[in-house]
Amino acid sequence: MIETAYAKINLALHVRKRRDDGYHELETLFAFVDAGDRLSVVPAAQDRLQVVGEFGGELADPFGNIVMQALATLRRPQGWAVTLEKNLPVAAGLGGGSADAGALFRLVEREYGLPADWHARAARLGADVPACVQSLACIGRGTGTELEPVENDLAGTPVLLVNPRVPLSTGPVFKAWDGLDRGAMPLGTAREIAFAGRNDLELPALQICHVIGEVLDRLRQTGATLVRMSGSGATCFALFGSAEDRSEAQQAMPADWWTLAGALR
């Protein structure tokens, strides 16, 4: 069995407050690109994981990988040998690990169905995992696990992801947030929310990783309809009116930056 772990982006990300439990109250618009990591599964005597691909070497401990954690939380009548082709950069604001776990949930669903409490099991693995299970545009509240449907009028939109190949951990970015509530995420369709929204983690991420500003500037010079940082960075995205404009923008990016051209699901 083969499944794509679709790259997650935050078309909008509003941070409202720090919670007493140490987490942050969020409002976000999740969207997914039609490309990402790749999981393949064959039956085995016991669960095991092999990590390959361009960024596979950055996952030093396969046994601590979120895919192995997802395998442990989803019982099956036989073991699975999973090969994870890691095409997405690590610590990049693309929900790579969460997307991998979400893809595994879909594989289990395809073969055996999911347990009734799959959402709770997914949330225990990470705040982005429930959204990544379905990998369709939706609104996330709370820590991101409280999901609501949204009218997805951005499906099929050409998108370019750009990462300067600088890993950026989520924790320090949230810690650098100034604590100011800049207002609720707007209501409406995915397009209306995305274009009227913002990413409150962009400024603290820029303070830690200055090259993000260069990525945003380069993307803004391409004629994109929307340019923003995803999640806690350092990946930025640009939406385009045509695949041709997206391709031209990708060619204009520095050769040593990672890019991925796709479309929103």
Score class of each variant (00 low, 15 high):
W118E: 04
V15S: 10
T145F: 08
M185S: 03
V129A: 12
A224D: 11
A196Y: 09
R106M: 12
R106P: 06
C138P: 00
A120I: 09
P167I: 05
E192Q: 15
C132D: 10
A72Q: 14
D256R: 07
K86V: 04
G57E: 05
G142Q: 04
T73L: 04
F105V: 07
L39M: 08
E202N: 11
F55P: 02
G36W: 04
I66Y: 00
F240S: 01
I2N: 15
R220Y: 05
Q221G: 04
T4E: 00
T170M: 02
D245E: 10
A91R: 12
R18D: 01
P130I: 03
G140Q: 06
G144C: 09
T83C: 09
G188I: 08
L260S: 09
P77A: 13
A137H: 01
D117V: 04
G171C: 00
L26Q: 00
D217M: 13
A103M: 00
F55D: 02
D61P: 00
Q251S: 15
E146A: 11
R265C: 10
W80D: 06
A155C: 05
A81N: 04
R124D: 13
R218E: 11
Y23T: 07
R75G: 12
Q78H: 11
D117I: 11
G213Q: 15
I212S: 00
P77G: 05
L49F: 04
A127H: 01
D178A: 05
T170F: 03
A131C: 12
P77N: 12
Q50K: 09
E202C: 13
M1N: 08
A190E: 09
T73D: 11
D200H: 04
L154Q: 05
A196T: 11
D178Q: 05
L49D: 01
L147G: 01
L125V: 15
A12Y: 05
I208W: 10
P167C: 01
A81H: 14
L180E: 10
G142C: 08
Q46N: 07
R228P: 01
I9M: 08
L26A: 02
E109C: 10
L59A: 10
H24L: 14
Y6C: 13
A99G: 10
R198H: 00
G171D: 05
A7M: 08
L160M: 07
V42C: 06
A103K: 00
D37N: 14
E148W: 12
P158T: 10
F55R: 08
L219M: 06
R110L: 03
C236G: 01
A70M: 03
Q69E: 13
A120D: 15
G156H: 01
L136Q: 13
G95K: 11
S169H: 11
G57R: 03
Y112C: 12
M1V: 10
D21C: 00
L94I: 08
D20A: 14
R76N: 09
E111H: 12
P62K: 07
C209W: 11
L136C: 07
F63Q: 08
L264Q: 06
G96K: 02
